[in-house]
Design a binder for these strands. Sequence first.
DNA 1: CGGGATCCAACAGGATACTG
DNA 2: CAGTATCCTGTTGGATCCCG
Lengths: 116, 116
Amino acid sequence: MSKIYTPDTAALGVEQVLRLLEGRWKLVILFHLFDGKVQRYSDFGRLIPGISQKMLSQQLRQLEADGIVSRKLYPQVPPKVEYRLTEWGQALCPALDSMLKWAEKRETLQSPPEAS
Amino acid sequence: MSKIYTPDTAALGVEQVLRLLEGRWKLVILFHLFDGKVQRYSDFGRLIPGISQKMLSQQLRQLEADGIVSRKLYPQVPPKVEYRLTEWGQALCPALDSMLKWAEKRETLQSPPEAS
DNA sequence: CGGGATCCAACAGGATACTG
DNA sequence: CAGTATCCTGTTGGATCCCG
């Protein structure tokens, strides 16, 4: 361990990384790539009814730029693009899974305070 | 198992719950309540240098309304308020921990694509 | 099919001042 | 100390049109 992390600087690093997951649709997109699933651009539009094309491409590009999602283009006509998690993105799955479990606990642990 | 969840409706439920964690500062606040820690209002201001009072109280109140954080007021002068995770909020800790581990993996799994 | 560009409305969020 | 109220700006996000 040559690295020196005080608790504070470590916390700051976490803040930076957490910002990569911000955004109205990123987690939802990630959930649809969970478990190694591969999706095409139009798949997301179908899986996530509320999202606009702009948001979809924007969030996908940010996830791609941040090294969480990879984009594979098949240069054919009509074009075909596949999205999947990168290796690092796959490493997020345990966290996503925990959040899934947490969501379910809401009903057993307390009565939900009525969706706002 | 009397509940009937199709994968799709389950995914929708997740989306709703994930929205409870949206917001620029919520996860950061949660991290500072991690592991049963108790913080006062002013503690957050010190722990999270960039946050404004408005954002702090706003995010705290949302977390409270959503049943993730509890607020304990000591009716004295000057007033004293303590924040901690609710039982359900505590259940988020495994997920937070996973995200922490994920953040650290970034350096071992790939070279960070330069913070934007 | 898989986007980009543009315009616009809504909201998130910051700075400051004030209060019990 | 622990907030609230107000104002103001930047960003988010939706709708629409266009392109390779």
